[in-house]
Every structure is written in C-alpha cells, then in structure tokens.
C-alpha cells in the first residue's frame, strides 16, 4: 500500500520552517534591519589595551554601536585611531567626548561617549578627514594606571625614609623626649604652689608701689611749692639772660644788615681768594725751602744752573755743558 502524502502540506511546512529559521538567525544575530549607522573615528593618546573589534560603544550607558577597526593614527604613531559605527540617531556633536573605560577589573575595555550640550552643531568630517573625528580624553582608570608606577615608587621611597626615621636610635631619642616632657609637665604641676607664693609676693610689691606713689605725690606737692616760690627768682634771671642774648643778636644782625654787601662779597669772593692765597703761600714756602737747600748744597749751581746735558738738533746727539 502506497502512502499518499500531501505535497502541499509538506511544501508549506518546509517553507514555514525556513522562514522560522531565517527569523531565528536574524533574532540571534541581533540584526536590526531598520537601523541606520554612521561611522566615526576616535583618536586616543597612548594605549587602548583591552579594546577589541566588536567592543561595545555606549552613549550615557546605552549601547549605541561597536568598534569596527583599531589602527595607528595615519600621521601620528603615538596615537591610536579607533573606527566606531554608531546608530545615526546618536547625537554626536562638536562637544562630544569619547573615553576609554574598563569593565571592572577584568581588563575588558569599552568606549563611553559623553553627550554634548544641546544645540551644538552636528559633528562633520573636516577637509582631509575620511570620517568625523570624536574628541577623546583619558579616563580615570588610564590616569591611575599611568601614575600608579610613580606612586608606588614614591611610596617605596617614603617607606624607606620612615624606616630610617624610626630606627632604633631615633626611637630611643623619642622615648627620652617623651620622658623629659613627662618630667616637665610634672614639674609644672608641682610649681603651681610656687606660683601661688609668687602671686602673694606680687600683692606685697603692689602695696609697696602704692605707698611709694603716695610719697611721690607728696614730693610733687613740695615741688609745686618750690616752683611757686624759688623758681620765680630763677625764671626772672633766665629771662634777663635771654633778653641780653637777644640784644646781642640784634646788634650782630644790625651789623650784618648794614654791611650785607661787604659780608656777601667777603664770603663769596674773598674767602676763595684767601684759600688760593694760602695755597700759593704754601707753594712759595716749599719753593723757598728747596732754594735754600740748593744754596746750602751747591751755590754755584743755584746761580748758574745745573750742569745738565743738552740736545744738539744738528748733530742729533746729547752733549754735556761745560762750566
């Protein structure tokens, strides 16, 4: 007996299975057929260790794209160019910043894109650029990883210095300082009794000062009496003396006023002349002294001059003078 299958039913089943398979493949591949994408370049300074192709790109924590390619920057070997593909509705403007972040401590990196203020212009490719370039900045983790070695080195140095500071000798000194401090504190506490005694002495001294002030007041009273009686006579004498001095100054002043021109001429003209005359007299006295010495030593040379050579212009030679 021959099985009579329905060809229509089998064909329908096969087609339905294939359609379901295709739908499953699309679902499993997360293919969004309606989505539109836009490519961007991101230039990172330094290493992008932990970042791979297909790594996720987040915008404010929302996955909006992935990494398509990672290469060195075309004209700068110290930078890394990361090609990312983002959904076209992601607002990538001129103030947008990309940052390399890490997921926990696993070392897997992703790119976090930070939004820009609203109203900023849409990011476009500049002349000479293949795609728009999103600005990047170092993440906190990158800075920590870069500075960590220096921090560790400095920490090691600091620990070494603390060890030197806290060596046995210094610890011994610290113990001695603490012991001295304790002793000083104890002395201060004991000294409060002395301070009480000191305050009592100060009170006594203040009483004596009050007594002395009273005596000084009495002395001032007697000084007042002196000023009222004897000082009158002294003041009268002083006034007379000042009057005499004033009269003498007036006379000198009148004398100078009457001869002002002469005095001025004497001061401005004659005094310098007198100074010059004194200088000339000194010079003359020196010359006379030399002359007298010469006469004493050799009178003939003084009268007729020394026997010194002369230069003959004709023969161009020096000849001695005969006397």
């Amino acid at each position: 007996m021959e099985t009579r299958a329905s060809h229509i039913l089998v064909g329908s089943f096969v087609l339905a299975f294939l359609a379901g398979l295709i739908a499953f493949a699309i679902w499993i591949a997360k293919v969004d057929l309606d989505a539109e994408y836009q490519d961007y370049d991101i230039l990172f300074d330094g290493s992008v260790s932990g970042l791979y192709k297909r790594s996720i790109v987040y915008y404010l924590g929302i996955p909006v794209g992935d990494v398509r390619d990672i290469t060195l920057a075309p004209h700068d070997s110290e930078k890394v160019r990361v090609l990312v593909r983002l959904r076209s509705e992601v607002p990538v403007n001129e103030g947008t910043i990309a940052r390399l972040e890490f997921q926990g401590l696993t070392g897997v990196a992703y790119i976090e894109i930070k939004g820009s203020p609203q109203g900023a212009a849409r990011l476009t490719a500049l002349p000479g650029q293949e795609r728009p370039v999103i600005q990047s900045e170092a993440s906190v983790f990158q800075e920590v990883f870069e500075t960590a070695p220096n921090l560790i080195n400095e920490a090691i140095l600091t620990v070494g210095r603390i060890q030197k500071l806290l060596d046995d000798e210094n610890l011994k000194n610290m113990a001695s300082i603490l012991e001295n401090t304790d002793r000083a504190t104890r002395n201060i506490a004991d000294g409060t009794e002395d301070i009480d005694g000191l305050v009592a002495d100060v009170r006594t001294v203040m009483a004596q000062v009050n007594d002395t002030a009273g005596k000084l007041g009495a002395l001032a009273d007697s000084g007042n009496q002196f000023m009222q009686e004897d000082a009158d006579r002294l003041v009268n004498e002083a006034v007379e003396t000042l009057k005499s001095a004033q009269r003498m100054i007036d006379r000198v002043d009148a004398l100078v006023a009457a001869n002002e021109d002469n005095v001025t001429q004497f001061v401005s003209g004659s005094l310098p002349e007198i100074t010059r005359m004194i200088m000339d007299l000194r010079s003359t006295a020196r010359s006379l002294s030399r002359l007298v010495s010469k006469i004493e030593h050799n009178p003939a040379e003084t009268l007729f001059g020394p026997n010194e050579g002369t230069y003959d212009l004709e023969s161009r030679k020096v000849k001695e003078t005969e006397q």
């Binding site: 010194e308 050579g309 002369t310 230069y311 003959d312 212009l313 020096v318 000849k319």
Partner: peptide, 15 residues
C-alpha cells in the same frame, strides 16, 4: 724739553 729713550730728559741746545 727733549724726551729721549729710557725716560731721559734733556733740553734743546741754544733754544
């Protein structure tokens, strides 16, 4: 005055 070599000083004869 006539200044000769070696700081020697003389005078011109007849002048």
């Amino acid at each position: 005055a006539v200044a000769l070599d070696g700081n020697q000083l003389v005078t011109i004869d007849g002048v």
